[in-house]
Design a protein around this nucleic acid. Structure first.
Lengths: 205, 205
DNA sequence: GTCTATACGTGGATAGAC
DNA sequence: GTCTATCCACGTATAGAC
């Protein structure tokens, strides 16, 4: 059983979380639209339907809002590629699935993706270092799959690190140009990227 | 022969151009380091060794500085890929050369490239439209080469527009992550990209 | 063409009432 | 926790002397 105090603090936390998250969503909208620096805390507040001062009840600084968005974005992307790598049927199919899912995520979350990728330098050095850890995990995940395929003799890849980076690069760059209201659905682009990834690693004649 | 007036105005223009270009270089430094919005006109001025007011003698607004940088960057990139496409020996070699040169340019000019790519939205609508023209020319250049290779029966490419975009994407994304002081020289990455491009388009077994 | 001085608006963040 | 009011620093751009 929870004490009255605990229930009270849970209730508070719940109410607080919802305001906190409304502000986070407002921050994503604003950062994606105008960039981190051009976004004002007043803008974030008004998008969340609050006064400028309310921001600071739920978040320490404008930068801490960015950091929270960045952590959530990196965790989501890492989760997507890790899950896709999980099912180790056959290396080519595994790679296809990974690039497909990773591209899909970046196409469907291009706003968060843009913030995460382009506002990296706006983070404090401490926060940058933490985010860099997520990035290393994502790279390692891709490198491992390539390495296993080469070991199994079904991939022809000389430059493991370089090729892994190129594959991730292709997906990540979607946040720069993919238009969710454009003619091509995310699934089509993701399918093309996945096919290209397989061709990039397949044994040559 | 030039009249005295013409020589005088040339001299003026020369002096003016040098101050103008010092400011442009300072702007590139600042924009690349801190982003367009976070860069102050005071910062640009002091990097060029001038007073804040001097900026406005040579450039109308901060945005016009960005536009000039963007035009020069796009022209240079378009020039690089156009020249590389010129020598039409054999489609695979031609594509290899194009991706190699285009990647090299983006690796070696990642600062200008980052400004050009990431600050696109900071341009006025009119300036954006003009820049979009350069981008279309670059895309068309890549698409044409793929189309010729397919016609010649030496490329296997189903999605011409999508593949062209993916190839350009791979090169352009270098501006996001390539580190000129990192362990890999630009030539190595460019070589890898060019090899991958050929594999992406080569006939499959 | 360059400077100093400044107008004028806006930014992040805080104070203190309710 | 939310508000209004506000502090104080800084930004773009201009005015006017030299």
């Amino acid at each position: 059983m929870l004490s009255t105090e605990e229930r009270t603090s849970m209730t508070d936390a719940t109410a607080s979380r919802s305001a906190r998250e409304r502000l986070l969503e407002a921050a994503v909208d604003a950062f994606a639209e105008k960039g981190f620096t051009a976004t004002t805390t007043r803008d974030i507040a008004s998008r969340a339907g609050m006064s400028p001062a309310a921001v600071y009840v739920h978040h320490d600084t404008k930068e801490s809002l960015l950091f929270t968005v960045s952590v959530q974005g990196h965790r989501a992307a890492l989760d997507v590629i890790t899950r896709a790598a999980k099912d180790e049927s056959e290396p080519a199919a595994q790679l296809h699935r990974m690039v497909h899912e990773f591209s899909t995520w970046h196409a469907e979350n291009s706003r968060v993706g843009r913030i995460v990728q382009y506002e990296f330098d706006a983070l404090t050095p401490e926060h940058r270092a933490e985010i860099a850890g997520y990035r290393r995990q994502i790279e390692r995940c891709m490198q491992d799959v390539l390495a296993h395929g080469v070991e199994a003799g079904v991939f022809d890849v000389e430059d493991l690190a370089g090729t892994a980076r190129a594959l991730l690069s292709l997906s990540v760059d979607l946040v720069r140009w993919f238009d969710p209201h454009g003619p091509r659905p995310a699934s089509e682009v993701a399918g093309l990227h996945a096919d290209l990834a397989v061709r990039m690693t397949a044994p040559r004649a």
